[in-house]
Design a protein around this nucleic acid. Sequence first.
DNA 1: GATCTTCTACTCGGATAAAATCTGTCCGAGTTCAGTAGG
DNA 2: CCTACTGAACTCGGACAGATTTTATCCGAGTAGAAGATC
Lengths: 162, 162
Amino acid sequence: MSEGVEWALHGCLNLAWAEEGEDARAVPAAVLARMYELPPAYLNKQLQALARAGIVGSTSGPRGGFRLARSPREITLLDVVVAIEGADEAFRCTGILGQGPDGDPSVDYRKTCVISQTMRRAELRWRRELAGQTLADIMTTVRERFPAVPGETRDRLANLRP
Amino acid sequence: MSEGVEWALHGCLNLAWAEEGEDARAVPAAVLARMYELPPAYLNKQLQALARAGIVGSTSGPRGGFRLARSPREITLLDVVVAIEGADEAFRCTGILGQGPDGDPSVDYRKTCVISQTMRRAELRWRRELAGQTLADIMTTVRERFPAVPGETRDRLANLRP
DNA sequence: GATCTTCTACTCGGATAAAATCTGTCCGAGTTCAGTAGG
DNA sequence: CCTACTGAACTCGGACAGATTTTATCCGAGTAGAAGATC
């Protein structure tokens, strides 16, 4: 899995904290990058993927940057992962059963192949878990365990502006 | 996920069918490769990984090849996946929380980071599912749905020998 | 003082390169078996 | 006839290239705001 997934998740979380502040300004990619000492241009690229997926909105120019495009309650972790990694399943069943000399091209082996089914079921469990966790859920848990984090994050974001 | 996982899973299943036959000979990689028209040397490479993991045993020379190293009941799909893909988690949490200017190196953020925990829990679901399915389970299901497959497979393996 | 224009600085967005990984290939080490010579 | 020896074919195992994906960088298009000139 691409490392950008972690960046994107933390980025969204930070955008969510920022959104809660009084002066909710858009956050430039460079500010998020400074927060974790990440390559700014590359982080920007990942955020572009989030923008294409409709998870964040982007604005150019001064006072521009990224902000969440919808409520944290309507952003699941799966949404973010899919936006970065793509929607393809990790286990690519090429249907090798049909490739052999005795293979029947008219059969869809992804449906009948028991191995494929089992792998897909496991992957479905993973997806379900991620689809069941929204950004809002994460925020609630963080607030319970570390009440200071939201405020601190907003402060850091403000201080990291140029 | 590497495509070799699919090859390895089907390879193990075929080895399991072969093991049930009367004249249980080791199966060369070349024979398995012909079955699905795969590059023989590369498939051999994947089987080597299975051998290193102790899932299959290998024998050199004439009448050599691969065979299951233990009972299908004691081989889980997770074993095979880990043997090919490695034991690393898909979501690599680099603990970026600790990398920023305000990060505390003494804290293990993989333990405290809520995002990391959630991602790991999802991945755990995936692993549990795969760990709960043994090669024997797959064989049972296949036999229920396609009773002819075991015999046909043994025949095909025999016919594909040089 | 208000307004319009110009100008600069800032931000995203996609095109472009370097690095790492996955995929595929090749040849050597070791082993089994068949054939052969000798007792 | 039985045994030991030689040789050859077969198989795995790891070292060696090619292709694809991931990671990282750079520069241009567009925009908001500030400064300055004009009315």
